[in-house]
Design a protein around this nucleic acid. Sequence first.
DNA 1: TGCAAAAATGAATACGTAACCATTTTGAAA
DNA 2: TTTCAAAATGGTTACGTATTCATTTTTGCA
Lengths: 329, 329
Amino acid sequence: MVSSKDVAKHAGVSQTTVSRVLNTPNLVKKPTVDKVMAAIEELHYIPNAHARSLVQNKTNTIALLSGPLHNPFFVDTTAAIVNYANSKGYRVHVQFVNDEKLNEAYTSVVENKVDGVVMSCILLDDPIFEKFEKMDIPFITYNRKHINNKHFVEIDNFQAGILSARHMLELGHKQIAWIGGPSTVSTFKNRYDGFVEGMNTQDLASQYVIQTNTSKQAVKEAFEKLMQLPTPPTAICAATDAIALQTIDEATKAGYRVPADISVVGIDNVDLSKHGSIELTTVGSISEQNLGFLAINELIEMIENKKNSCVKITESVKVFNRKTTKAYQ
Amino acid sequence: MVSSKDVAKHAGVSQTTVSRVLNTPNLVKKPTVDKVMAAIEELHYIPNAHARSLVQNKTNTIALLSGPLHNPFFVDTTAAIVNYANSKGYRVHVQFVNDEKLNEAYTSVVENKVDGVVMSCILLDDPIFEKFEKMDIPFITYNRKHINNKHFVEIDNFQAGILSARHMLELGHKQIAWIGGPSTVSTFKNRYDGFVEGMNTQDLASQYVIQTNTSKQAVKEAFEKLMQLPTPPTAICAATDAIALQTIDEATKAGYRVPADISVVGIDNVDLSKHGSIELTTVGSISEQNLGFLAINELIEMIENKKNSCVKITESVKVFNRKTTKAYQ
DNA sequence: TGCAAAAATGAATACGTAACCATTTTGAAA
DNA sequence: TTTCAAAATGGTTACGTATTCATTTTTGCA
């Protein structure tokens, strides 16, 4: 492999000068720059990023610890994060992490001395949070947050839960179900709390509330359980668009029509929800930019300006009224 | 930052021994191992991957140059590639590349001395191919290929085009349109050639054939152009599921019903096509595993076993008959 | 023309690890 | 015990770059 020493020899200068040509060319005489650049071209020299990282203690690399891509929310955010980071000159280590594997992800992050971490997959009181905090590397969470988080970007999950419930109530539904996820996750906890707040007490029944692990299988079972009830729900509030879409998939395949037989509303307003074949009614951020984009923006700001102040962004939400809910009759 | 020298000092051994404890512990006496491990624990030492890469000339990193995630095909393949690579101990640099930015991607790959490259975004006769080839790093393409490719994984695109055309013919359609992409891309070229092969000459009319750049806007315009024809098509064969889904989205929003008013078939059989609200009829691989998975498997094989023989995998295809096509009447 | 200041260049070193080679310690056979 | 091979450990170096400090060359001005 061709190194800066090879270039130096070829151009008849020192390795130091080669380095200067690439980093501080204004300190080098024009003819020397030309000589060196010619050698670089000729030898197809490209600097070794690892050697540079070693001496500069800066890698131009960001770690993205995302949720799984079968959740369309993470499709949107991953695309936004990777593209923005790349446009700013950062490479992105992507991992699709489940809660158990967070420790491996942590090791990988430290080993590779990334300049920053943007992550979603963390529990409200995950003990690993402290390790990330102590790393002394800028990091930010999006969507989910930890109780002690100083840097996060989220939507107003509590309000989203309220709007979800109210939407169904306003449509005249009485049997309104909730399919959510574990309350160890900030998103699910706050959205559910909002849902409870938004419901009328007489309409809120425990048999209509199901906490799943958000897997395809679990959502399927949740839906079946609900529909086997003596008086099955006429409306389902899903904690996320991913759950809503799973639910609609199951419902459709079980012969129900959405929204004729059952109304479904999600939360997140993922891109896919706008598709003409889906037209998912959902609650989502008022802002055009997705949470991943906001998070990577803040993270790069933190990295480059070394600012250490808290970043706590909570986006306002509204209902996007599309075609998976209708009035109860 | 805590280095192996710090650990060595703390444990009262040499740095060499610390390195051995981590890499070849069987060469170290048990009590010494324990002493060193204790020091590692105590200091929270994690080796610096860049320093290791520098001396070993191996980074345990793979570069993924994928197409954009708004194409569901790349959602499936990205998930498969990242997850499998991680499970094998490789980190993955992800980039969503368009054809113009391939040069930047190349530089990034060389700078970072990745162990291998898995990519989709290449043109049939892209001159950059030679540079990748000369890199002397294992690399493999999936989906698309270059004319000189020695390592690729694809579906039988020609046969897919044939099956797509035949499917519509068998349903009795006469006005059958093609919405594809630029023929500078192997996938589009071969699928279109297959489509032509599968059609009856009297049913193949040039006004029904449109090459787009596969952008949302371009597909929209293509669909509108087709439907403004004196005798608009009753069936559309889309070169990819992404185009098919875009087409259906446009059609739905323009007031057409699919398949009642117009039949649409895709190619790729992406996961999303199975969704109950979509049920896209499509042509796809007989095998369960997606192309990304096959590619990353082969790539890691190439990296670890240094095998250099050609890998040219072309998966057989079949029609997945779902609900976006129906008989012409 | 001479001289100081500025500009340009080079030599040596550090970053943190693995690997190579040298040295010491151990243990088993004679 | 003595001997010697095997096991265990340590000292030194290389990887490729940026940086620090030293040296040489050039420039501007008296």
